[in-house]
Design a protein around this nucleic acid. Structure first.
Lengths: 233, 233
DNA sequence: TTGCGTTCGTTAGAAGTTGTAACGCACAGC
DNA sequence: GCTGTGCGTTACAACTTCTAACGAACGCAA
């Protein structure tokens, strides 16, 4: 079953050790955050000396970059799978939230505080584009008629730039952007613990914000219920 | 003008050195992030030996906690000043964005990736409540009639919990929450550089999201323009 | 099966970090 | 002017990342 292809024993061993290093790194990150990741501690856990790990990763930065890459790939895969299963914007939102709650620090590795000097390698930005492409696919499903809004008009033809030349109308771009920023806004604050002790269920806030995206004219969870004050006067 | 009160020369000197340490720390954080903060480097910059700083801060953690405290206080002050100047939700949004852009790492110190083990001291949560109070003040200004939405209904009487017993109606709580999460969503992604190279102005996206808060029924930047598809069929 | 070469893990060490301990000096207040 | 508190020092321990040099083990090929 394990059709590993033409890999030498050394390559297999190397891949296995690299995988174990990354797994231990994930465990460490989950409990101490990315800044608390220690190569030496990982080596000790594996019964190795510190410098041994440098045979597998050039250094701490490369390991973290690899973890970021895996995190992006994981989210991109989840989105692609959801898309393939026919999930719409709501399905993607559920996928995103489940992915985030599954490992909050993994979410923060992708969308959290950036290191000022760090610049993501090209393949990572490619994965980001793939994620955006799945999002645009789902955003384009819902029909968009009516005149283009001022900001949306600014988005004309930007799909080519974002996601592998995705040809999406401005309204879809606007919707995808709102999906991203609003759900990230709720999720990141929830995962950071800023809602603890506030007495409401973050999941409800998440779905309420989702509703503003999938059903913009649905008043059920709008900011202002219908029949508000007459603003024309 | 400088009514320092009854402070001994030693106290004044101590306060001055502490202030200089914090200032250098802010500079370091701005260029290398919070994880790149080094007490030794600060000491060298000030012409001191490493352990000298431990007379002023118990350790790295206490210094960072103090910086977080200052960051919270800074935002709370900015919000209070804006509120006192009669700023509404839009004014608070402008204040927030200017405060964030002024020092992105300071923003991330407050709303960025949390350290798993860290728990904020009580006075910091009190400042968070004060920020929330300013937000609720502005949120309560706009009248809210109509039936309470499902999620908003869950927020009944929660103002007492959030912000110094602030008596706000559910709709105001809902609005404040949306203000917080939506603007944070846009701001944090912008500051993290996730919009770079996408070809649109993050400021426009910010104001577009703000419009959904201050003018929920304004179609100008809504997700779906008016006259959308008939969803009842 | 017998080499040979790549790869791996080791120890040693440099340069950095946080943080503690002990010492001396200088300053402020009495 | 004396005295004690507070400050800065050096020395040190324990940790980190990361390099260098060495030896052993392993796979492959003849």
């Amino acid at each position: 079953m394990a059709e590993t292809g033409t890999t030498t024993p050394r390559e297999r061993y190397r891949a296995q050790v690299r995988a174990e290093i990354k797994q231990r790194a994930w465990e460490q990150i989950a409990t101490a955050g990315a800044s608390g990741l220690s190569l030496n501690a990982i080596a000790k856990q594996m019964g190795l000396s510190g410098p041994a790990l440098y045979r597998y990763f050039a250094g701490r930065d490369e390991l973290i970059t690899e973890l970021i890459r895996d995190a992006y790939r994981s989210l991109a895969d989840a989105f692609r799978a959801a898309s393939a299963a026919g999930a719409g914007l709501a399905g993607l939102a559920r996928t995103l939230r489940a992915w985030a709650l599954d490992d909050p620090q993994r979410y923060f590795l992708v969308y959290g505080t950036p290191v000022p000097g760090y610049h993501a390698p090209d393949d990572v930005t490619a994965l980001a584009s793939e994620i955006m492409a799945s999002l645009l696919d789902a955003s384009a499903e819902a029909p968009s008629d009516g005149p283009a809004a001022p900001f949306a008009a600014q988005l004309e033809g930007l799909g080519r730039q974002w996601a592998d030349g995705h040809p999406a109308p401005p309204a879809a771009l606007r919707r995808a952007l709102a999906f991203w920023t609003r759900l990230h806004g709720v999720l990141s604050l929830e995962l950071a613990g800023h809602f603890t002790g506030m007495g409401f269920d973050p999941a409800h806030l998440f779905t309420a914000e989702l509703t503003t995206l999938t059903d913009p004219s649905d008043p059920s969870d709008a900011i202002d219920p219908p029949g508000g004050p007459d603003r024309s006067g």
